[in-house]
Every structure is written in structure tokens, then in C-alpha cells.
Amino acid sequence: MLLRVLAALPFIGILLGVPFVNRVEPLLLGMPFVLGWIVAWVVLSSIIMAIIYRLDPSNRQIAADSEEVRP
């Protein structure tokens, strides 16, 4: 359940959040606020997907199997 909620966060942040932050001011690193919002969510999406990868139990099983094969 937690993995599904984490996976939905980028969708919610980018697609559903943009209408609420659709303004030019304040500027974030010289970008309009809405563009800064989207860039931030692209970066956060990568971080969230890395967290999901680490928490997914099937990935732990694959890693454990690959370590057993090595001499």
C-alpha cells in the first residue's frame, strides 16, 4: 500500500498540483513559479522512484539471489 501511495505522489504533484500553483511570481532560480514546481517534481520523482525500488520486496529477493551465485 505504501509503495502505491509513493508512486502516486509524482502524478499528483505534477498533474493535479499545477493548476493550484499556476503563477509567475515568485521566481525560483529565475524561473516562473509553475516551471520551478514542475522541475522540482521531476527531481522528486527520481528520488521517490529510488525509494520505491529500495523498499520493493521483490528487488531484495533478486539482489539476494544474485549475491549467492557469485563465487
Rank of each mutant, 00 (worst) to 15 (best):
A40W: 13
D56Q: 11
S58C: 05
V42G: 15
V18R: 11
A40N: 06
M31I: 05
M31N: 11
P19V: 02
L35K: 12
L44W: 03
L27M: 13
L29N: 07
R23N: 09
V24Q: 13
P32K: 01
E25D: 13
S58V: 07
R60K: 12
R54H: 09
L28W: 15
E25P: 06
R23A: 08
V42M: 10
S45V: 02
L27T: 10
E25M: 14
M31S: 04
Y53R: 07
I47Q: 03
F33Y: 14
A40C: 08
I48Y: 06
S58G: 03
A40V: 07
F20R: 12
W37R: 11
V34C: 03
M31D: 04
I38C: 11
D56N: 14
W41E: 02
M31V: 03
W41L: 01
I48P: 06
V39F: 15
L28D: 02
I47V: 15
L27Y: 14
D56G: 02
V43Y: 04
G30P: 12
D56Y: 10
M49V: 03
R23W: 01
I47M: 10
L55A: 04
V43K: 05
R23K: 11
D56K: 13
V18H: 08
V24R: 15
V21S: 00
S58I: 08
G36R: 06
R54Y: 08
A50R: 03
M49R: 08
V34Y: 13
S46C: 13
L29M: 05
M49I: 02
F20E: 05
V39L: 15
R23C: 03
L29D: 08
R54S: 09
P57K: 08
R60V: 03
S58R: 15
R60C: 02
S45I: 01
V42E: 08
D56R: 13
W37C: 06
L27N: 11
L55H: 01
P57L: 05
V39D: 13
V21R: 00
E25T: 13
D56A: 10
G30E: 07
F33D: 04
L28M: 10
I51Y: 02
L28T: 08
G30L: 07
L55R: 07
V24L: 09
E25N: 14
V42K: 09
V39T: 15
R23T: 08
V39P: 13
I52L: 03
P32T: 00
I51R: 06
F33T: 06
I51S: 06
V42I: 15
L27S: 13
V42C: 14
A40R: 10
